[in-house]
Design a protein around this nucleic acid. Structure first.
Length: 863
DNA sequence: CGGATCGAC
DNA sequence: CTATGTCGATCCG
């Protein structure tokens, strides 16, 4: 009872194994034992650049583990007990919400690519084969696996393991076709099924099962496909000819091996209908039917898992592969039994690194994961330990969410060393061209371009740049990418940049909403002003970036932008890292030549823009290279000199929002100093809370801030509630940032100062939180900002939920700090609760963690 | 946001 | 000789 997996309500079939065994003997291949395999791999690997890099990565992981262990040492039993209590409260809640009512199926084609290749070329059937190339294999068949030949292994090493290995090149077109055939079957059982790549899919058959109960037998009867070969391959005569003569062991033969499928049924004994099978109405029967139909249609076998959620389904589809299925009955105990001794590595989402880290804590199985839940909640980020908890309880999604819109698109290529700038640029252009094509196919435009480089030592670097207007055309992308590339080339000059891979990615697509509004928005407003080249406004991307983000993105996103922008604007005296950048920027030689030689439009754009700049407010051309002058001019415009224009902008709420969003940038530019020893928020022009400090209700407070802000900006007051909420956040942010900037103004601009964000003066500053109106004694702006974040979220959530009390506290500050999650990432889900308590809980842990990294100690987050 | 890392197929 | 390509998520600064 205890150790036994009673998961297999369905009979688990061994027919396949028998068949494999036969094949073994016939072919006379024994494969290799693990030791031999490892030795061969090591011999082939040792000393390579690749291996050196692997060692390096390994070291990094070990360091992470080391840090974690140090953190663990400092945990007191007190803290552990407290954590235990908290986590267990959550466990109760999770347990109460456990949902076992769905039936999720995970279908997994067995050794898909290899199986397809074997099907289409019977000569390969008895041989060990792999699909891929000498440098990388995608999959291997079961013969080859006995030699240790696995997916993600380079072909040349596989050859050493198994000299007879046949490597078949990839043929995605073919796999796609087969995949489509399979999907045609799957969709009958769940119109919303979720394909994962070409060879896997999740189905929610809950509804199908209900309907099926009333189905007559005939609807559940399926026929053996005796002539599948000729039918299937009508487009390939040669192929079918091969099948017919070459001892094509057609599906029925395969099927006979599968005792499980046959025995449970009326079998062939049911002579009423020749060559047919009737499937029952249970989940197992449904899945057998699916697998049967897949095999009849494609001559390929699939494995499957049936369970109450996707995670379990996926894990148990592994149990009886190949060509088998497994079910976890929808009972809590069955689920827990299944997990009991299951190695965590089997869990989707837990990979090599996580496995190793958990192993360092003595956690190998899922039940151990549960036992250590308290400890894990102290050592890992909230997202991580909650995930661990879900895993150890056997919880997962019970419904299939169709994947949302695409977030990025990319293309990358590996090649033998390329080290001349010229080649690198043309390669870059080529990648941009390919990517542009793909983007346009889906009609996508993105604002962020990322360059990825892997040097010959396998070290990977990515460099990204976000621009004002969305890009999709080759030239647009290349214009950004070449800048990034140029910077990298220069960064190693005078040495050549020696790379083995280059990739380009575009992300930051407009959402549907944004697309709708884009034309009215500031962006197009600006763009229409003159030239798209505004996006390459020089020098320093900070300006246009800043502008972009404030006009187009959520208030949240603007936080960092402001910071960075402020930094760059302030950075006359540069920190070491900035110095490098600057140097690169000005010392561009090696790449500059090439860039200039490339007589593409983009360059012209740049040079034009540097001289003529159209003010987005008054529309007048400003011919100045001095950004400060330009900004001053814009400030003046915005400050009301040209009211008519701003009214025009404000025609709709959305525009207002955008306007508000980018306004703070100009404020920052002007550096309205606000820092005073105390009460600076209340005392400044920016602070709306000045009018009435006695206001205690936070939402009221916020609203007031908004209205005052609006007043200042001379916006009409007919904002919708939604817009108001958005503005509200923005207002607070601008306030926080101004403080930040101000601080940096005052102090040395060393990187150290910035990263630690400490006040120079040792005496405690007192800031007044604009939301809760309480004094915050703090030594760090970061912590103050965090407090405001938390307050803000609290206020918003309260507003949304009408002060509803939530039973569990899942969203607390100490977690946020310790887990390294910003409050921004938490507290986003009202249903997750907002009550905050026990602020002292793990503060000391948090402090220790931080102080071990820096010389200072962050004192308090709350007084 | 930008960069690195993890994980999955 | 010879260690992929693409994507999403998360964490940190």
């Amino acid at each position: 009872m205890d150790n036994m997996k009673k998961v297999s309500n369905s009979s688990c079939n061994d027919g396949v194994l028998l068949r494999m065994g036969l094949n073994d003997n016939k072919a006379g291949m024994q494969g290799l034992d693990k030791e031999k395999i490892n030795k061969i791999i090591m011999d082939a690997t040792k000393g390579s650049r690749f291996y050196e890099n692997e060692l390096k990565k390994d070291k990094q992981v070990n360091q992470r583990i080391e840090k974690m262990m140090q953190l663990k040492e400092k945990i007191t039993t007190q803290q552990l007990l407290k954590a235990q209590l908290q986590v267990d409260k959550l466990v109760i809640e999770l347990e109460q919400n456990r949902n076992l009512s769905s039936t999720i199926v995970h279908i997994d084609m067995d050794a898909f690519y290899a199986a397809v290749e074997m099907r289409d070329n019977p000569e390969l059937k008895e041989k060990p084969i792999a699909v891929g190339s000498m440098s990388m294999l995608s999959t291997s068949n079961y013969h080859a696996r006995r030699f240790g030949v696995r997916a993600a292994m380079p072909g040349f090493i596989a050859k050493k393991l198994c000299p007879h290995l046949t490597i078949v090149p990839l043929n995605f077109e073919k796999y796609g076709k087969v995949s489509k055939e399979v999907r045609e079957i799957l969709i009958e059982y769940d119109p919303n099924f979720m394909p994962m790549g070409l060879d896997e899919a999740y189905l929610n058959i809950t509804e199908h099962l209900e309907e099926r109960l009333n189905w007559p037998e005939d609807k559940r009867r399926f026929f053996f496909n005796t002539q599948s070969a000729t039918e299937k391959d009508k487009d390939d005569i040669n192929m079918s000819a091969k099948f017919n003569e070459g001892g094509y062991s057609s599906s029925p033969v395969l099927f006979e091996d599968n005792t499980a499928l046959m025995d449970d049924h009326s079998k062939q004994g049911d002579k009423s209908v020749e060559n047919s099978v009737v499937f029952g109405t249970s989940a197992e029967e449904v899945v057998k039917e699916i697998r049967f139909r897949i095999e009849q249609k494609t001559q390929l076998t699939a494995s499957a898992g049936i369970a109450p959620n996707t995670m379990l389904a996926k894990m148990c589809s592994d149990c009886n592969k190949p060509n088998g299925q497994c079910r976890i009955a929808p009972e809590r105990q069955t689920v827990l039994d299944f997990l009991k001794d299951l190695p965590i590595r089997k869990v989707p989402g837990i990979g090599k690194v996580t496995e190793k880290m958990l192993k360092a804590l003595g956690i190998v199985t899922c039940s151990e994961l549960y036992q250590q839940r308290a400890l894990l909640s102290l050592l890992f980020s909230e997202a991580s330990w909650r995930n661990f908890l879900d895993i150890s309880l056997g919880l997962g999604s019970t419904h299939l969410e169709k994947d949302g819109e695409r977030k990025s698109m990319s293309t990358e290529r590996t090649f033998s060393e390329i080290n001349t700038a010229e080649d690198q640029y043309s390669l870059c252009r080529e990648l941009c061209r390919d990517l542009a094509q793909d983007l346009q196919k889906e009609g996508l435009k993105g604002k962020t371009v990322t360059l990825k480089l892997k040097n010959v030592n396998f070290e990977v670097k990515t460099r990204a740049s976000t621009v004002l207007s969305s890009v999709s055309a080759e030239e647009e992308i290349f214009a950004v990418a070449k800048e990034l590339l140029g910077t990298e080339i220069d960064s190693v000059a005078p040495h050549p940049l020696r790379i083995r891979l280059m990739g380009i990615r575009v992300s930051g697509f407009l959402s549907e909403e944004e697309k709708k509004y884009q034309q009215k928005s500031i962006t197009s407003f600006l763009k229409s002003g003159k030239e798209t080249g505004f996006l390459r406004l020089q020098p320093g991307k900070s300006n246009q970036e800043y502008f972009t983000k404030h006009s187009e993105e959520s208030p949240r996103g603007s936080f960092f932008d402001k910071k960075r922008a402020a930094r760059q604007l302030n950075s006359e005296n540069l920190s070491p890292s900035d110095t490098v950048d600057k140097q690169l920027f000005h010392d561009r030689k090696s790449s500059a030549n090439f860039v200039e030689e490339s007589k593409k439009v983009t360059d012209l754009q740049i040079s034009n823009v540097c001289e003529i700049f159209t003010c987005p407010v008054c529309f007048e051309g400003q011919s100045s290279n001095n950004l400060e002058d330009l900004n001053r001019h814009i400030d003046e415009c915005l400050n009301g000199t040209f009211v008519k224009d701003s009214v025009q902008i404000s025609k709709n709420d959305n525009s207002i929002e955008n306007t508000l969003n980018f306004l703070p940038r100009f404020k920052n530019e002007n550096v309205e100093c606000q820092k005073k020893k105390t009460d600076h928020l209340a005392g400044t022009d920016q602070s709306a809370s000045t009018s009435d400090n006695s206001t205690s209700n936070s939402t009221e407070k916020i609203t007031q801030i908004i209205s005052d802000k609006r007043h200042r900006e001379r916006q009409p007051s007919n904002l919708s509630d939604i817009a108001r909420n958005l503005c509200m956040k923005q207002c607070l942010f601008s306030k926080r940032i101004s403080q930040d900037n101000n601080h940096f103004e005052k102090t040395e601009h060393t990187e150290a100062t910035r990263s630690s964000c400490f006040f120079e003066d040792k005496e405690d500053s007192v800031l007044v939180c604009p939301v809760c109106n309480s004094e915050q004694k703090t030594t760090s702006l970061v912590s103050f900002n965090r407090h405001v974040d938390v307050c803000l979220n609290k206020g918003l959530i309260q507003e949304l939920t009408e002060k509803k009390d939530f039973p569990t506290k899942t969203c607390n500050v100490e977690n946020s700090n310790r887990a390294g999650l910003s409050s921004r990432q938490q507290c986003t889900n009202p249903s997750q609760g907002t009550k905050r308590s026990g602020l002292t809980t793990s503060q000391s842990i948090s402090k220790k963690a931080k102080s071990s990294n820096s010389k200072h100690t962050i004192e308090m987050f709350f007084k």
